[in-house]
Structures are given as structure tokens and as C-alpha cells.
């Protein structure tokens, strides 16, 4: 069953200069997929376009069977799309519990306390001090709050934009362990990541984006060969695929 599909998506900030140039792929329900690529390949722009934060100029985005192309981000969130931006992904001037309460507004009233409680159980670091300002959290704890916020509404698809960005190796390990637990609950996971090694341990399928186009779509095991991935990043493999 399809959770998310893109068909010839074109997106960016200027219709004459699209950054994402006709990308198509399908993600099955419960699948964990990582999107890799060199800097400037358009990975973050693509995920933001899916999340309704960057304009789409052509093509289609479907969430399940629903066409959600160009929907504003708050309607996508209400339709089951969870998105965790790369940085500035929590409200630092609000407390931890207030961050979760805002997300819980999307749920029926009777479900809200239970779901907030479930997230605090899942992330004990947050449960220890729910009234503290989120701005006081460490980098890793911020990522956990961002993930808790996105998971709270039980989204159909959870997309994360470089959750390891700016974190120490120890914290990257913690964050990816958290993502592994999330993935095991059956949530469809789409992950944009620069930390290739960490991403490949978490997901079973990788999409490689080069210059706004899909250069590879397949299992992650072939990408453990650094040379193959390097060629993809440099565009040699993409050129071969195009021939």
C-alpha cells in the first residue's frame, strides 16, 4: 500500500529555475527510506516542497490516495504528514509541554492527554522537566522534542530533514536509535541525511538525488560501497543511467 508518491515533481523558489527537476518515486506504508545526495542536490528543497513549505511548479504529490500537491503546511499536517525541519524545529520560547500541546490540537480533545503522555513515556528526557523552556534543551533533546511533536499526531508519513545536523557523534547515535524505535512502530519514514553511514544503517532503501534529479533508487546495501556512492554523487553513475 502506497504511503507517499511523487510524480514528476518540479519545485523551487523561482519557476524559471526549478531546483527539483521532475522527481518521481513511491514509498510504501511502513517503509523507511533515506534521501541522499551531495550539497545543493535539492534534497531539502524537495522534502520542503512535499511538506508544503516550498512552491511546486509541476508534477504531483500524493499522500496515500489523496493529491496534496501545493497544500499549505498546516493542512498537510492535518492530513497525516509529519515533518521535522533541519534546524529551528521547535518553539524555543514555549515550554516542552506547550510544544506538545500545540501539536495535540490536531487530535480530538479526548485523545490529547493520552497522546502527550505516550510521547513523554517514549522520550523520558522530556518527561523529566515538561515545564522547562524548550530553548534550554540540548541539540539532541531538541531533535527528540521535534520527533515527539511530529509523532504525537500519529502521522501517516514522518519526514525528517537532516536530524543529525550540528550534533556530536554521541548525540547522532542517540537520535538514530530513537528513529530506529520509531521506524519499528510501523511509521513510514522518509529521511533526508548528509550523514550517509548513519542513514544507511537505519533504512532499507535509498534515493540519491543529484542536481535535482533522481540518480538512484534501490536497496541501501549497494551503497555501502563508498566508490559507487562517490560516483553517484559526482554524477558519473547518473550520466550512465541517463544513457
Amino acid at each position: 500500500m502506497t504511503a507517499l508518491s511523487l510524480s514528476q515533481l518540479q519545485a523551487g523558489y523561482d519557476p524559471d529555475l526549478p531546483i527539483v527537476k521532475g522527481v518521481s518515486f513511491t514509498v510504501k506504508k511502513g517503509e523507511a527510506v533515506c534521501i541522499l545526495g551531495p550539497n545543493g542536490a535539492g534534497k531539502s528543497t524537495m522534502i520542503k516542497a512535499i511538506a508544503g513549505l516550498v512552491p511546486c511548479f509541476g508534477g504531483q504529490v500524493r499522500l496515500g490516495e489523496t493529491d496534496v500537491t501545493g497544500l499549505p503546511s498546516h493542512l498537510l499536517a492535518r492530513n497525516g504528514m509529519g515533518f521535522v525541519p533541519q534546524t529551528e524545529n521547535i518553539f524555543t520560547r514555549l515550554s516542552i509541554i506547550e510544544n506538545l500541546q500545540i501539536a495535540a490540537q490536531l487530535l480530538p480533545k479526548h485523545e490529547r492527554p493520552g497522546r502527550i503522555e505516550a510521547m513523554l513515556d517514549m522520550f523520558p528526557d522530556l518527561a523529566a522537566r515538561p515545564r522547562e523552556l524548550a530553548g534550554a534543551l540540548s541539540g539532541g533533546q531538541r531533535q527528540m522534542l521535534a520527533a515527539a511533536r511530529a509523532l504525537l499526531t500519529e502521522p501517516e508519513v514522518l519526514m525528517l530533514d537532516e536530524p543529525s545536523a550540528g550534533l556530536s557523534p554521541k548525540l547522532v547515535g542517540q537520535v538514530f536509535e530513537t528513529l530506529r524505535r520509531i521506524s519499528e512502530t510501523g511509521v513510514t519514514l522518509v529521511l533526508v541525511e548528509q550523514n550517509v553511514r548513519a542513514a544507511l544503517t537505519l533504512t532499507e532503501r535509498a534515493l540519491v538525488l543529484v542536481d535535482g534529479k533522481l540518480a538512484h533508487d534501490g536497496p541501501t546495501d549497494v551503497l555501502h560501497d563508498g566508490k559507487f556512492l562517490g560516483e553517484l554523487f559526482l554524477g558519473h553513475r547518473a550520466a550512465e543511467a541517463g544513457q
Binding site: H74, A77, P85, F91, T92, L94, I102, Q105, L106, R149
Partner: peptide
């Protein structure tokens, strides 16, 4: 604090 993120929160 952040209108863009507010949309992402729903």
C-alpha cells in the same frame, strides 16, 4: 516565534 514552523505544527 516562527510562522513557518507554526504551519508545520498544524
Amino acid at each position: 516565534e516562527d510562522p513557518g514552523l507554526a504551519g508545520v505544527y498544524g
